[in-house]
Design a protein around this nucleic acid. Structure first.
Lengths: 210, 210
DNA sequence: AAGTTAATCAAACGTCTGTTTAATTTAGTG
DNA sequence: CACTAAATTAAACAGACGTTTGATTAACTT
């Protein structure tokens, strides 16, 4: 109890800053969010951000770490094992999409600030990407090569899978602006199933009259 | 000749600003690129940017227009007609990927600054997305529904196709940091073929011993 | 050659940026 | 209660931001 309240007190401002940063970075972008706005929204003093995180960049990398460590973990647990490749992929896609849906804001920050040439950020991301690379290489690409003589690089598969799974969440701000007269089932469950089916069997390979 | 030099002179600075902006926005991001840096790199006076384009935002929307108008045009020309759906899709993917490769910088600007809640930018993008929506709905989704009883929303198909085709180019800054001991054929032609095959037949639906 | 329009320029506008400092408050320990 | 360390604060730092202004130069028309 004492230890708890102690840590709560110590980390209260820190946590508040982190949570607020995730929301603001995702909605406005990292660069468009000023530290003053962030501090005011989080209800803390401006200097607290640099006090707890060192710099704005460090705050971003900490957010990236939270996201990527979970994403890598999902890939590791769902893709390892001796199951059929289709089973593993289905497991991975389903779980990853649910993770993306529950962490939209993380996803947006992690993916859309992906290209900036900031050495600090790129280097940080590539550390996580390297881990994903190895998992995908071992569990997907080697299996495709052995079982189907399909030589595909993890550098192709990994971005492709991540992109296709996250497309719904990244495009949503624009898609919401478009009126749609026909009604489609766009539930998350159906979305995950559809993406899985397309990745496994393609648009044309799916069973007719499904 | 007179007309040419006239227009050349008039548009020289303007063109220079536009070309420089595309490079800088793509490499550093829109927000990280200041107008002073842009003007200096382009070799023009700072005030010229607002003189020719009105504002920094307008400069961005003009860049987006150049990209999206071509992208919509590619979709329209490759997807319309009475050919088989697989033929149309193959045509579209091949051409779009080549277009992306030749306009990487445009692509990065158009896609990665996609989520920012700036009303001006989002509204502008949704205008183009609406055109893509109609083409994809008419030429892909309706055909899938009629021929295969597959009810898929254009709001799913369009972001998915765009994401999967652009994944290579968007992830490249991070992927380049990863050393790869095995050698894969990553030529553009092979990339386009692979993406086409995966979209049409999925990862598992492809012919063994291909 | 005079008049008109477009293009270029340096300079300043007010505001916001991330970061640091030093003083102050708060809380926990002996 | 005194001591120590962590947390919080207001204030200032130097610089960058997008945009505007008014003067000046260049080019084209009549």
């Amino acid at each position: 109890m004492k230890n708890n309240s102690e840590k709560n007190c110590r980390n209260n401002s820190r946590q508040q800053i982190l949570a607020t940063a995730i929301t603001l970075f995702a909605h406005q972008g990292f660069d468009k969010t000023g530290l003053r706005e962030l501090a005011k929204t989080a209800g803390v003093n401006l200097a607290m951000v640099n006090y707890f995180f060192g710099s704005k960049n460090k705050l971003l990398t900490e957010i990236l770490d939270i996201f990527f460590s979970q994403y890598v973990d999902i890939a590791r647990t769902t893709l390892s094992g001796d199951d059929e490749l289709s089973v593993k992929l289905e497991r991975f896609i389903l779980k990853a999409i649910k993770f993306f849906a529950e962490n939209r804001e993380f996803l947006i920050i992690a993916i859309t600030d992906l290209h900036h040439e900031d050495e600090e950020i790129i280097g940080h991301k590539s550390t996580w990407a390297r881990q994903m690379f190895k998992i995908v290489e071992l569990e997907i690409c080697h299996r495709l090569a052995e079982e189907r003589n399909l030589k595909l690089s993890p550098k192709l598969i990994m971005p492709m899978l991540t992109s296709i799974m996250s497309s719904r969440f990244l495009f949503s701000p624009v898609m919401e602006q478009i009126e749609d007269n026909e009604t489609y089932d766009m539930s998350l469950q159906r979305y995950a199933e559809t993406i899985t089916a397309i990745v496994l069997d393609g648009i044309l390979g799916q069973k007719v009259l499904r």
